[in-house]
Nucleic acid binder design. Structure first.
Lengths: 182, 182
DNA sequence: ACCGTTATATATCAGTCCGATATATCCTTG
DNA sequence: CAAGGATATATCGGACTGATATATAACGGT
């Protein structure tokens, strides 16, 4: 599932510009997948080349022409086939948790700070998602929203219950200067 | 946190070859980060150019020379500074859940199949992690292992409790051929 | 009135990453 | 004795990220 296919997917909901597709990624899919202009505009060009979308340019006063894309029958068929394939595996990447794999090199304080940061970040995300959840237009988005909340709640619980495992193997000496015992 | 820095990080545990670093990614960090040879070998070259690692080549019978890398004092200093930065945000990407954002285009059966697949995949991962957890050498890795289990358990619970939200908005008509009502 | 920020709207580019592929040999398993 | 997996290197195309560039309108604050 690459950005190209997801652009095509968003166009099944209706005509759209690159700019609007970017917003759709952010508002509807950012929990699972995100894409920037650097991926979206080239994707739309490629889809147009391949005849999977059509393009009409709308002139605007003192702004770049709006390029409105719409999906063609071939594009729709292509996406429907694609979306019925067996999906690949999930990927999770966390810089914060990765950092904690090197607890043996870190002052104890920093380990605690990173854990607190993770919890705070998750909590804020939970807060945002909980507010949004009811307003989401489709059941799919409500489902996803709830998913994001539940998983983060479980993560916070786990961290609170097990953080001592990491904090106890970090370096005791927090000061690197003028404490010279070594 | 890119592959280059993580290679440097693994070398704080001891000297290693590119091949062994690949294994370390897989065995110790694959829950959070994964890297292939296509990233690792160029990273090691760059680190060597920058004087952050040293290289000694060990000749072997009928095999490519083993290139054993070791971290230099500059490399160690660089990594310790790097690892104390405030870490960036987590990223989660799921092709399966992304697929489900397009439930309105999918036959009901397929939605159920994808949900079952997600659960089965998570359950298998939980099984593997549970077995491995006790054998992990460092507290950091035990912590992470448990994290992977808990989060997936929460995900499975959520999916089982809420899957009807997705299944009810999928297309009823499962057969696309020779059922021609439309 | 002015200034900073956000929103609209396009596009490109360097750096980075992923997955596949290539090469070569040894060891294990059926 | 063949097939497949482990050891060990390396490269390449395609894809993605984040930053940057270009313009202008609208809005709020001082």
């Amino acid at each position: 599932m690459n950005v190209r296919m997801l652009c095509l997917g968003f166009l099944t909901f209706g005509d759209s510009t690159g700019y609007e597709i970017k917003k759709a990624f952010q508002e509807r899919l950012s929990l699972l997948y995100n894409a920037g202009y650097g991926s979206i505009y080239p994707s739309l060009n490629k889809l147009h080349e391949d005849g999977l979308v059509m393009l009409r340019e709308e002139a605007q006063n003192n702004r770049p022409d709006k390029k409105v894309y719409s999906i063609t029958p071939e594009g729709r068929a292509c996406f429907e086939t694609y979306v019925q394939r067996t999906p690949g595996e999930d990927h999770f990447r966390s810089e914060a948790l990765t950092t904690l794999m090197f607890s043996h090199l870190l002052p104890k304080e920093h380990v605690s700070d990173v854990l607190d940061l993770i919890i705070a970040t998750y909590q804020e995300k939970i807060h945002l998602l909980s507010e949004d959840c009811d307003m989401k237009p489709t059941p799919s988005e409500k489902f996803l929203c709830g998913f994001g909340v539940k998983v983060r709640e479980a993560a916070i619980d786990y961290i609170n219950q097990n953080r001592h495992m990491l904090e106890s193997c970090a370096q005791e000496n927090s000061k690197k200067q003028t404490d010279g015992v070594e």
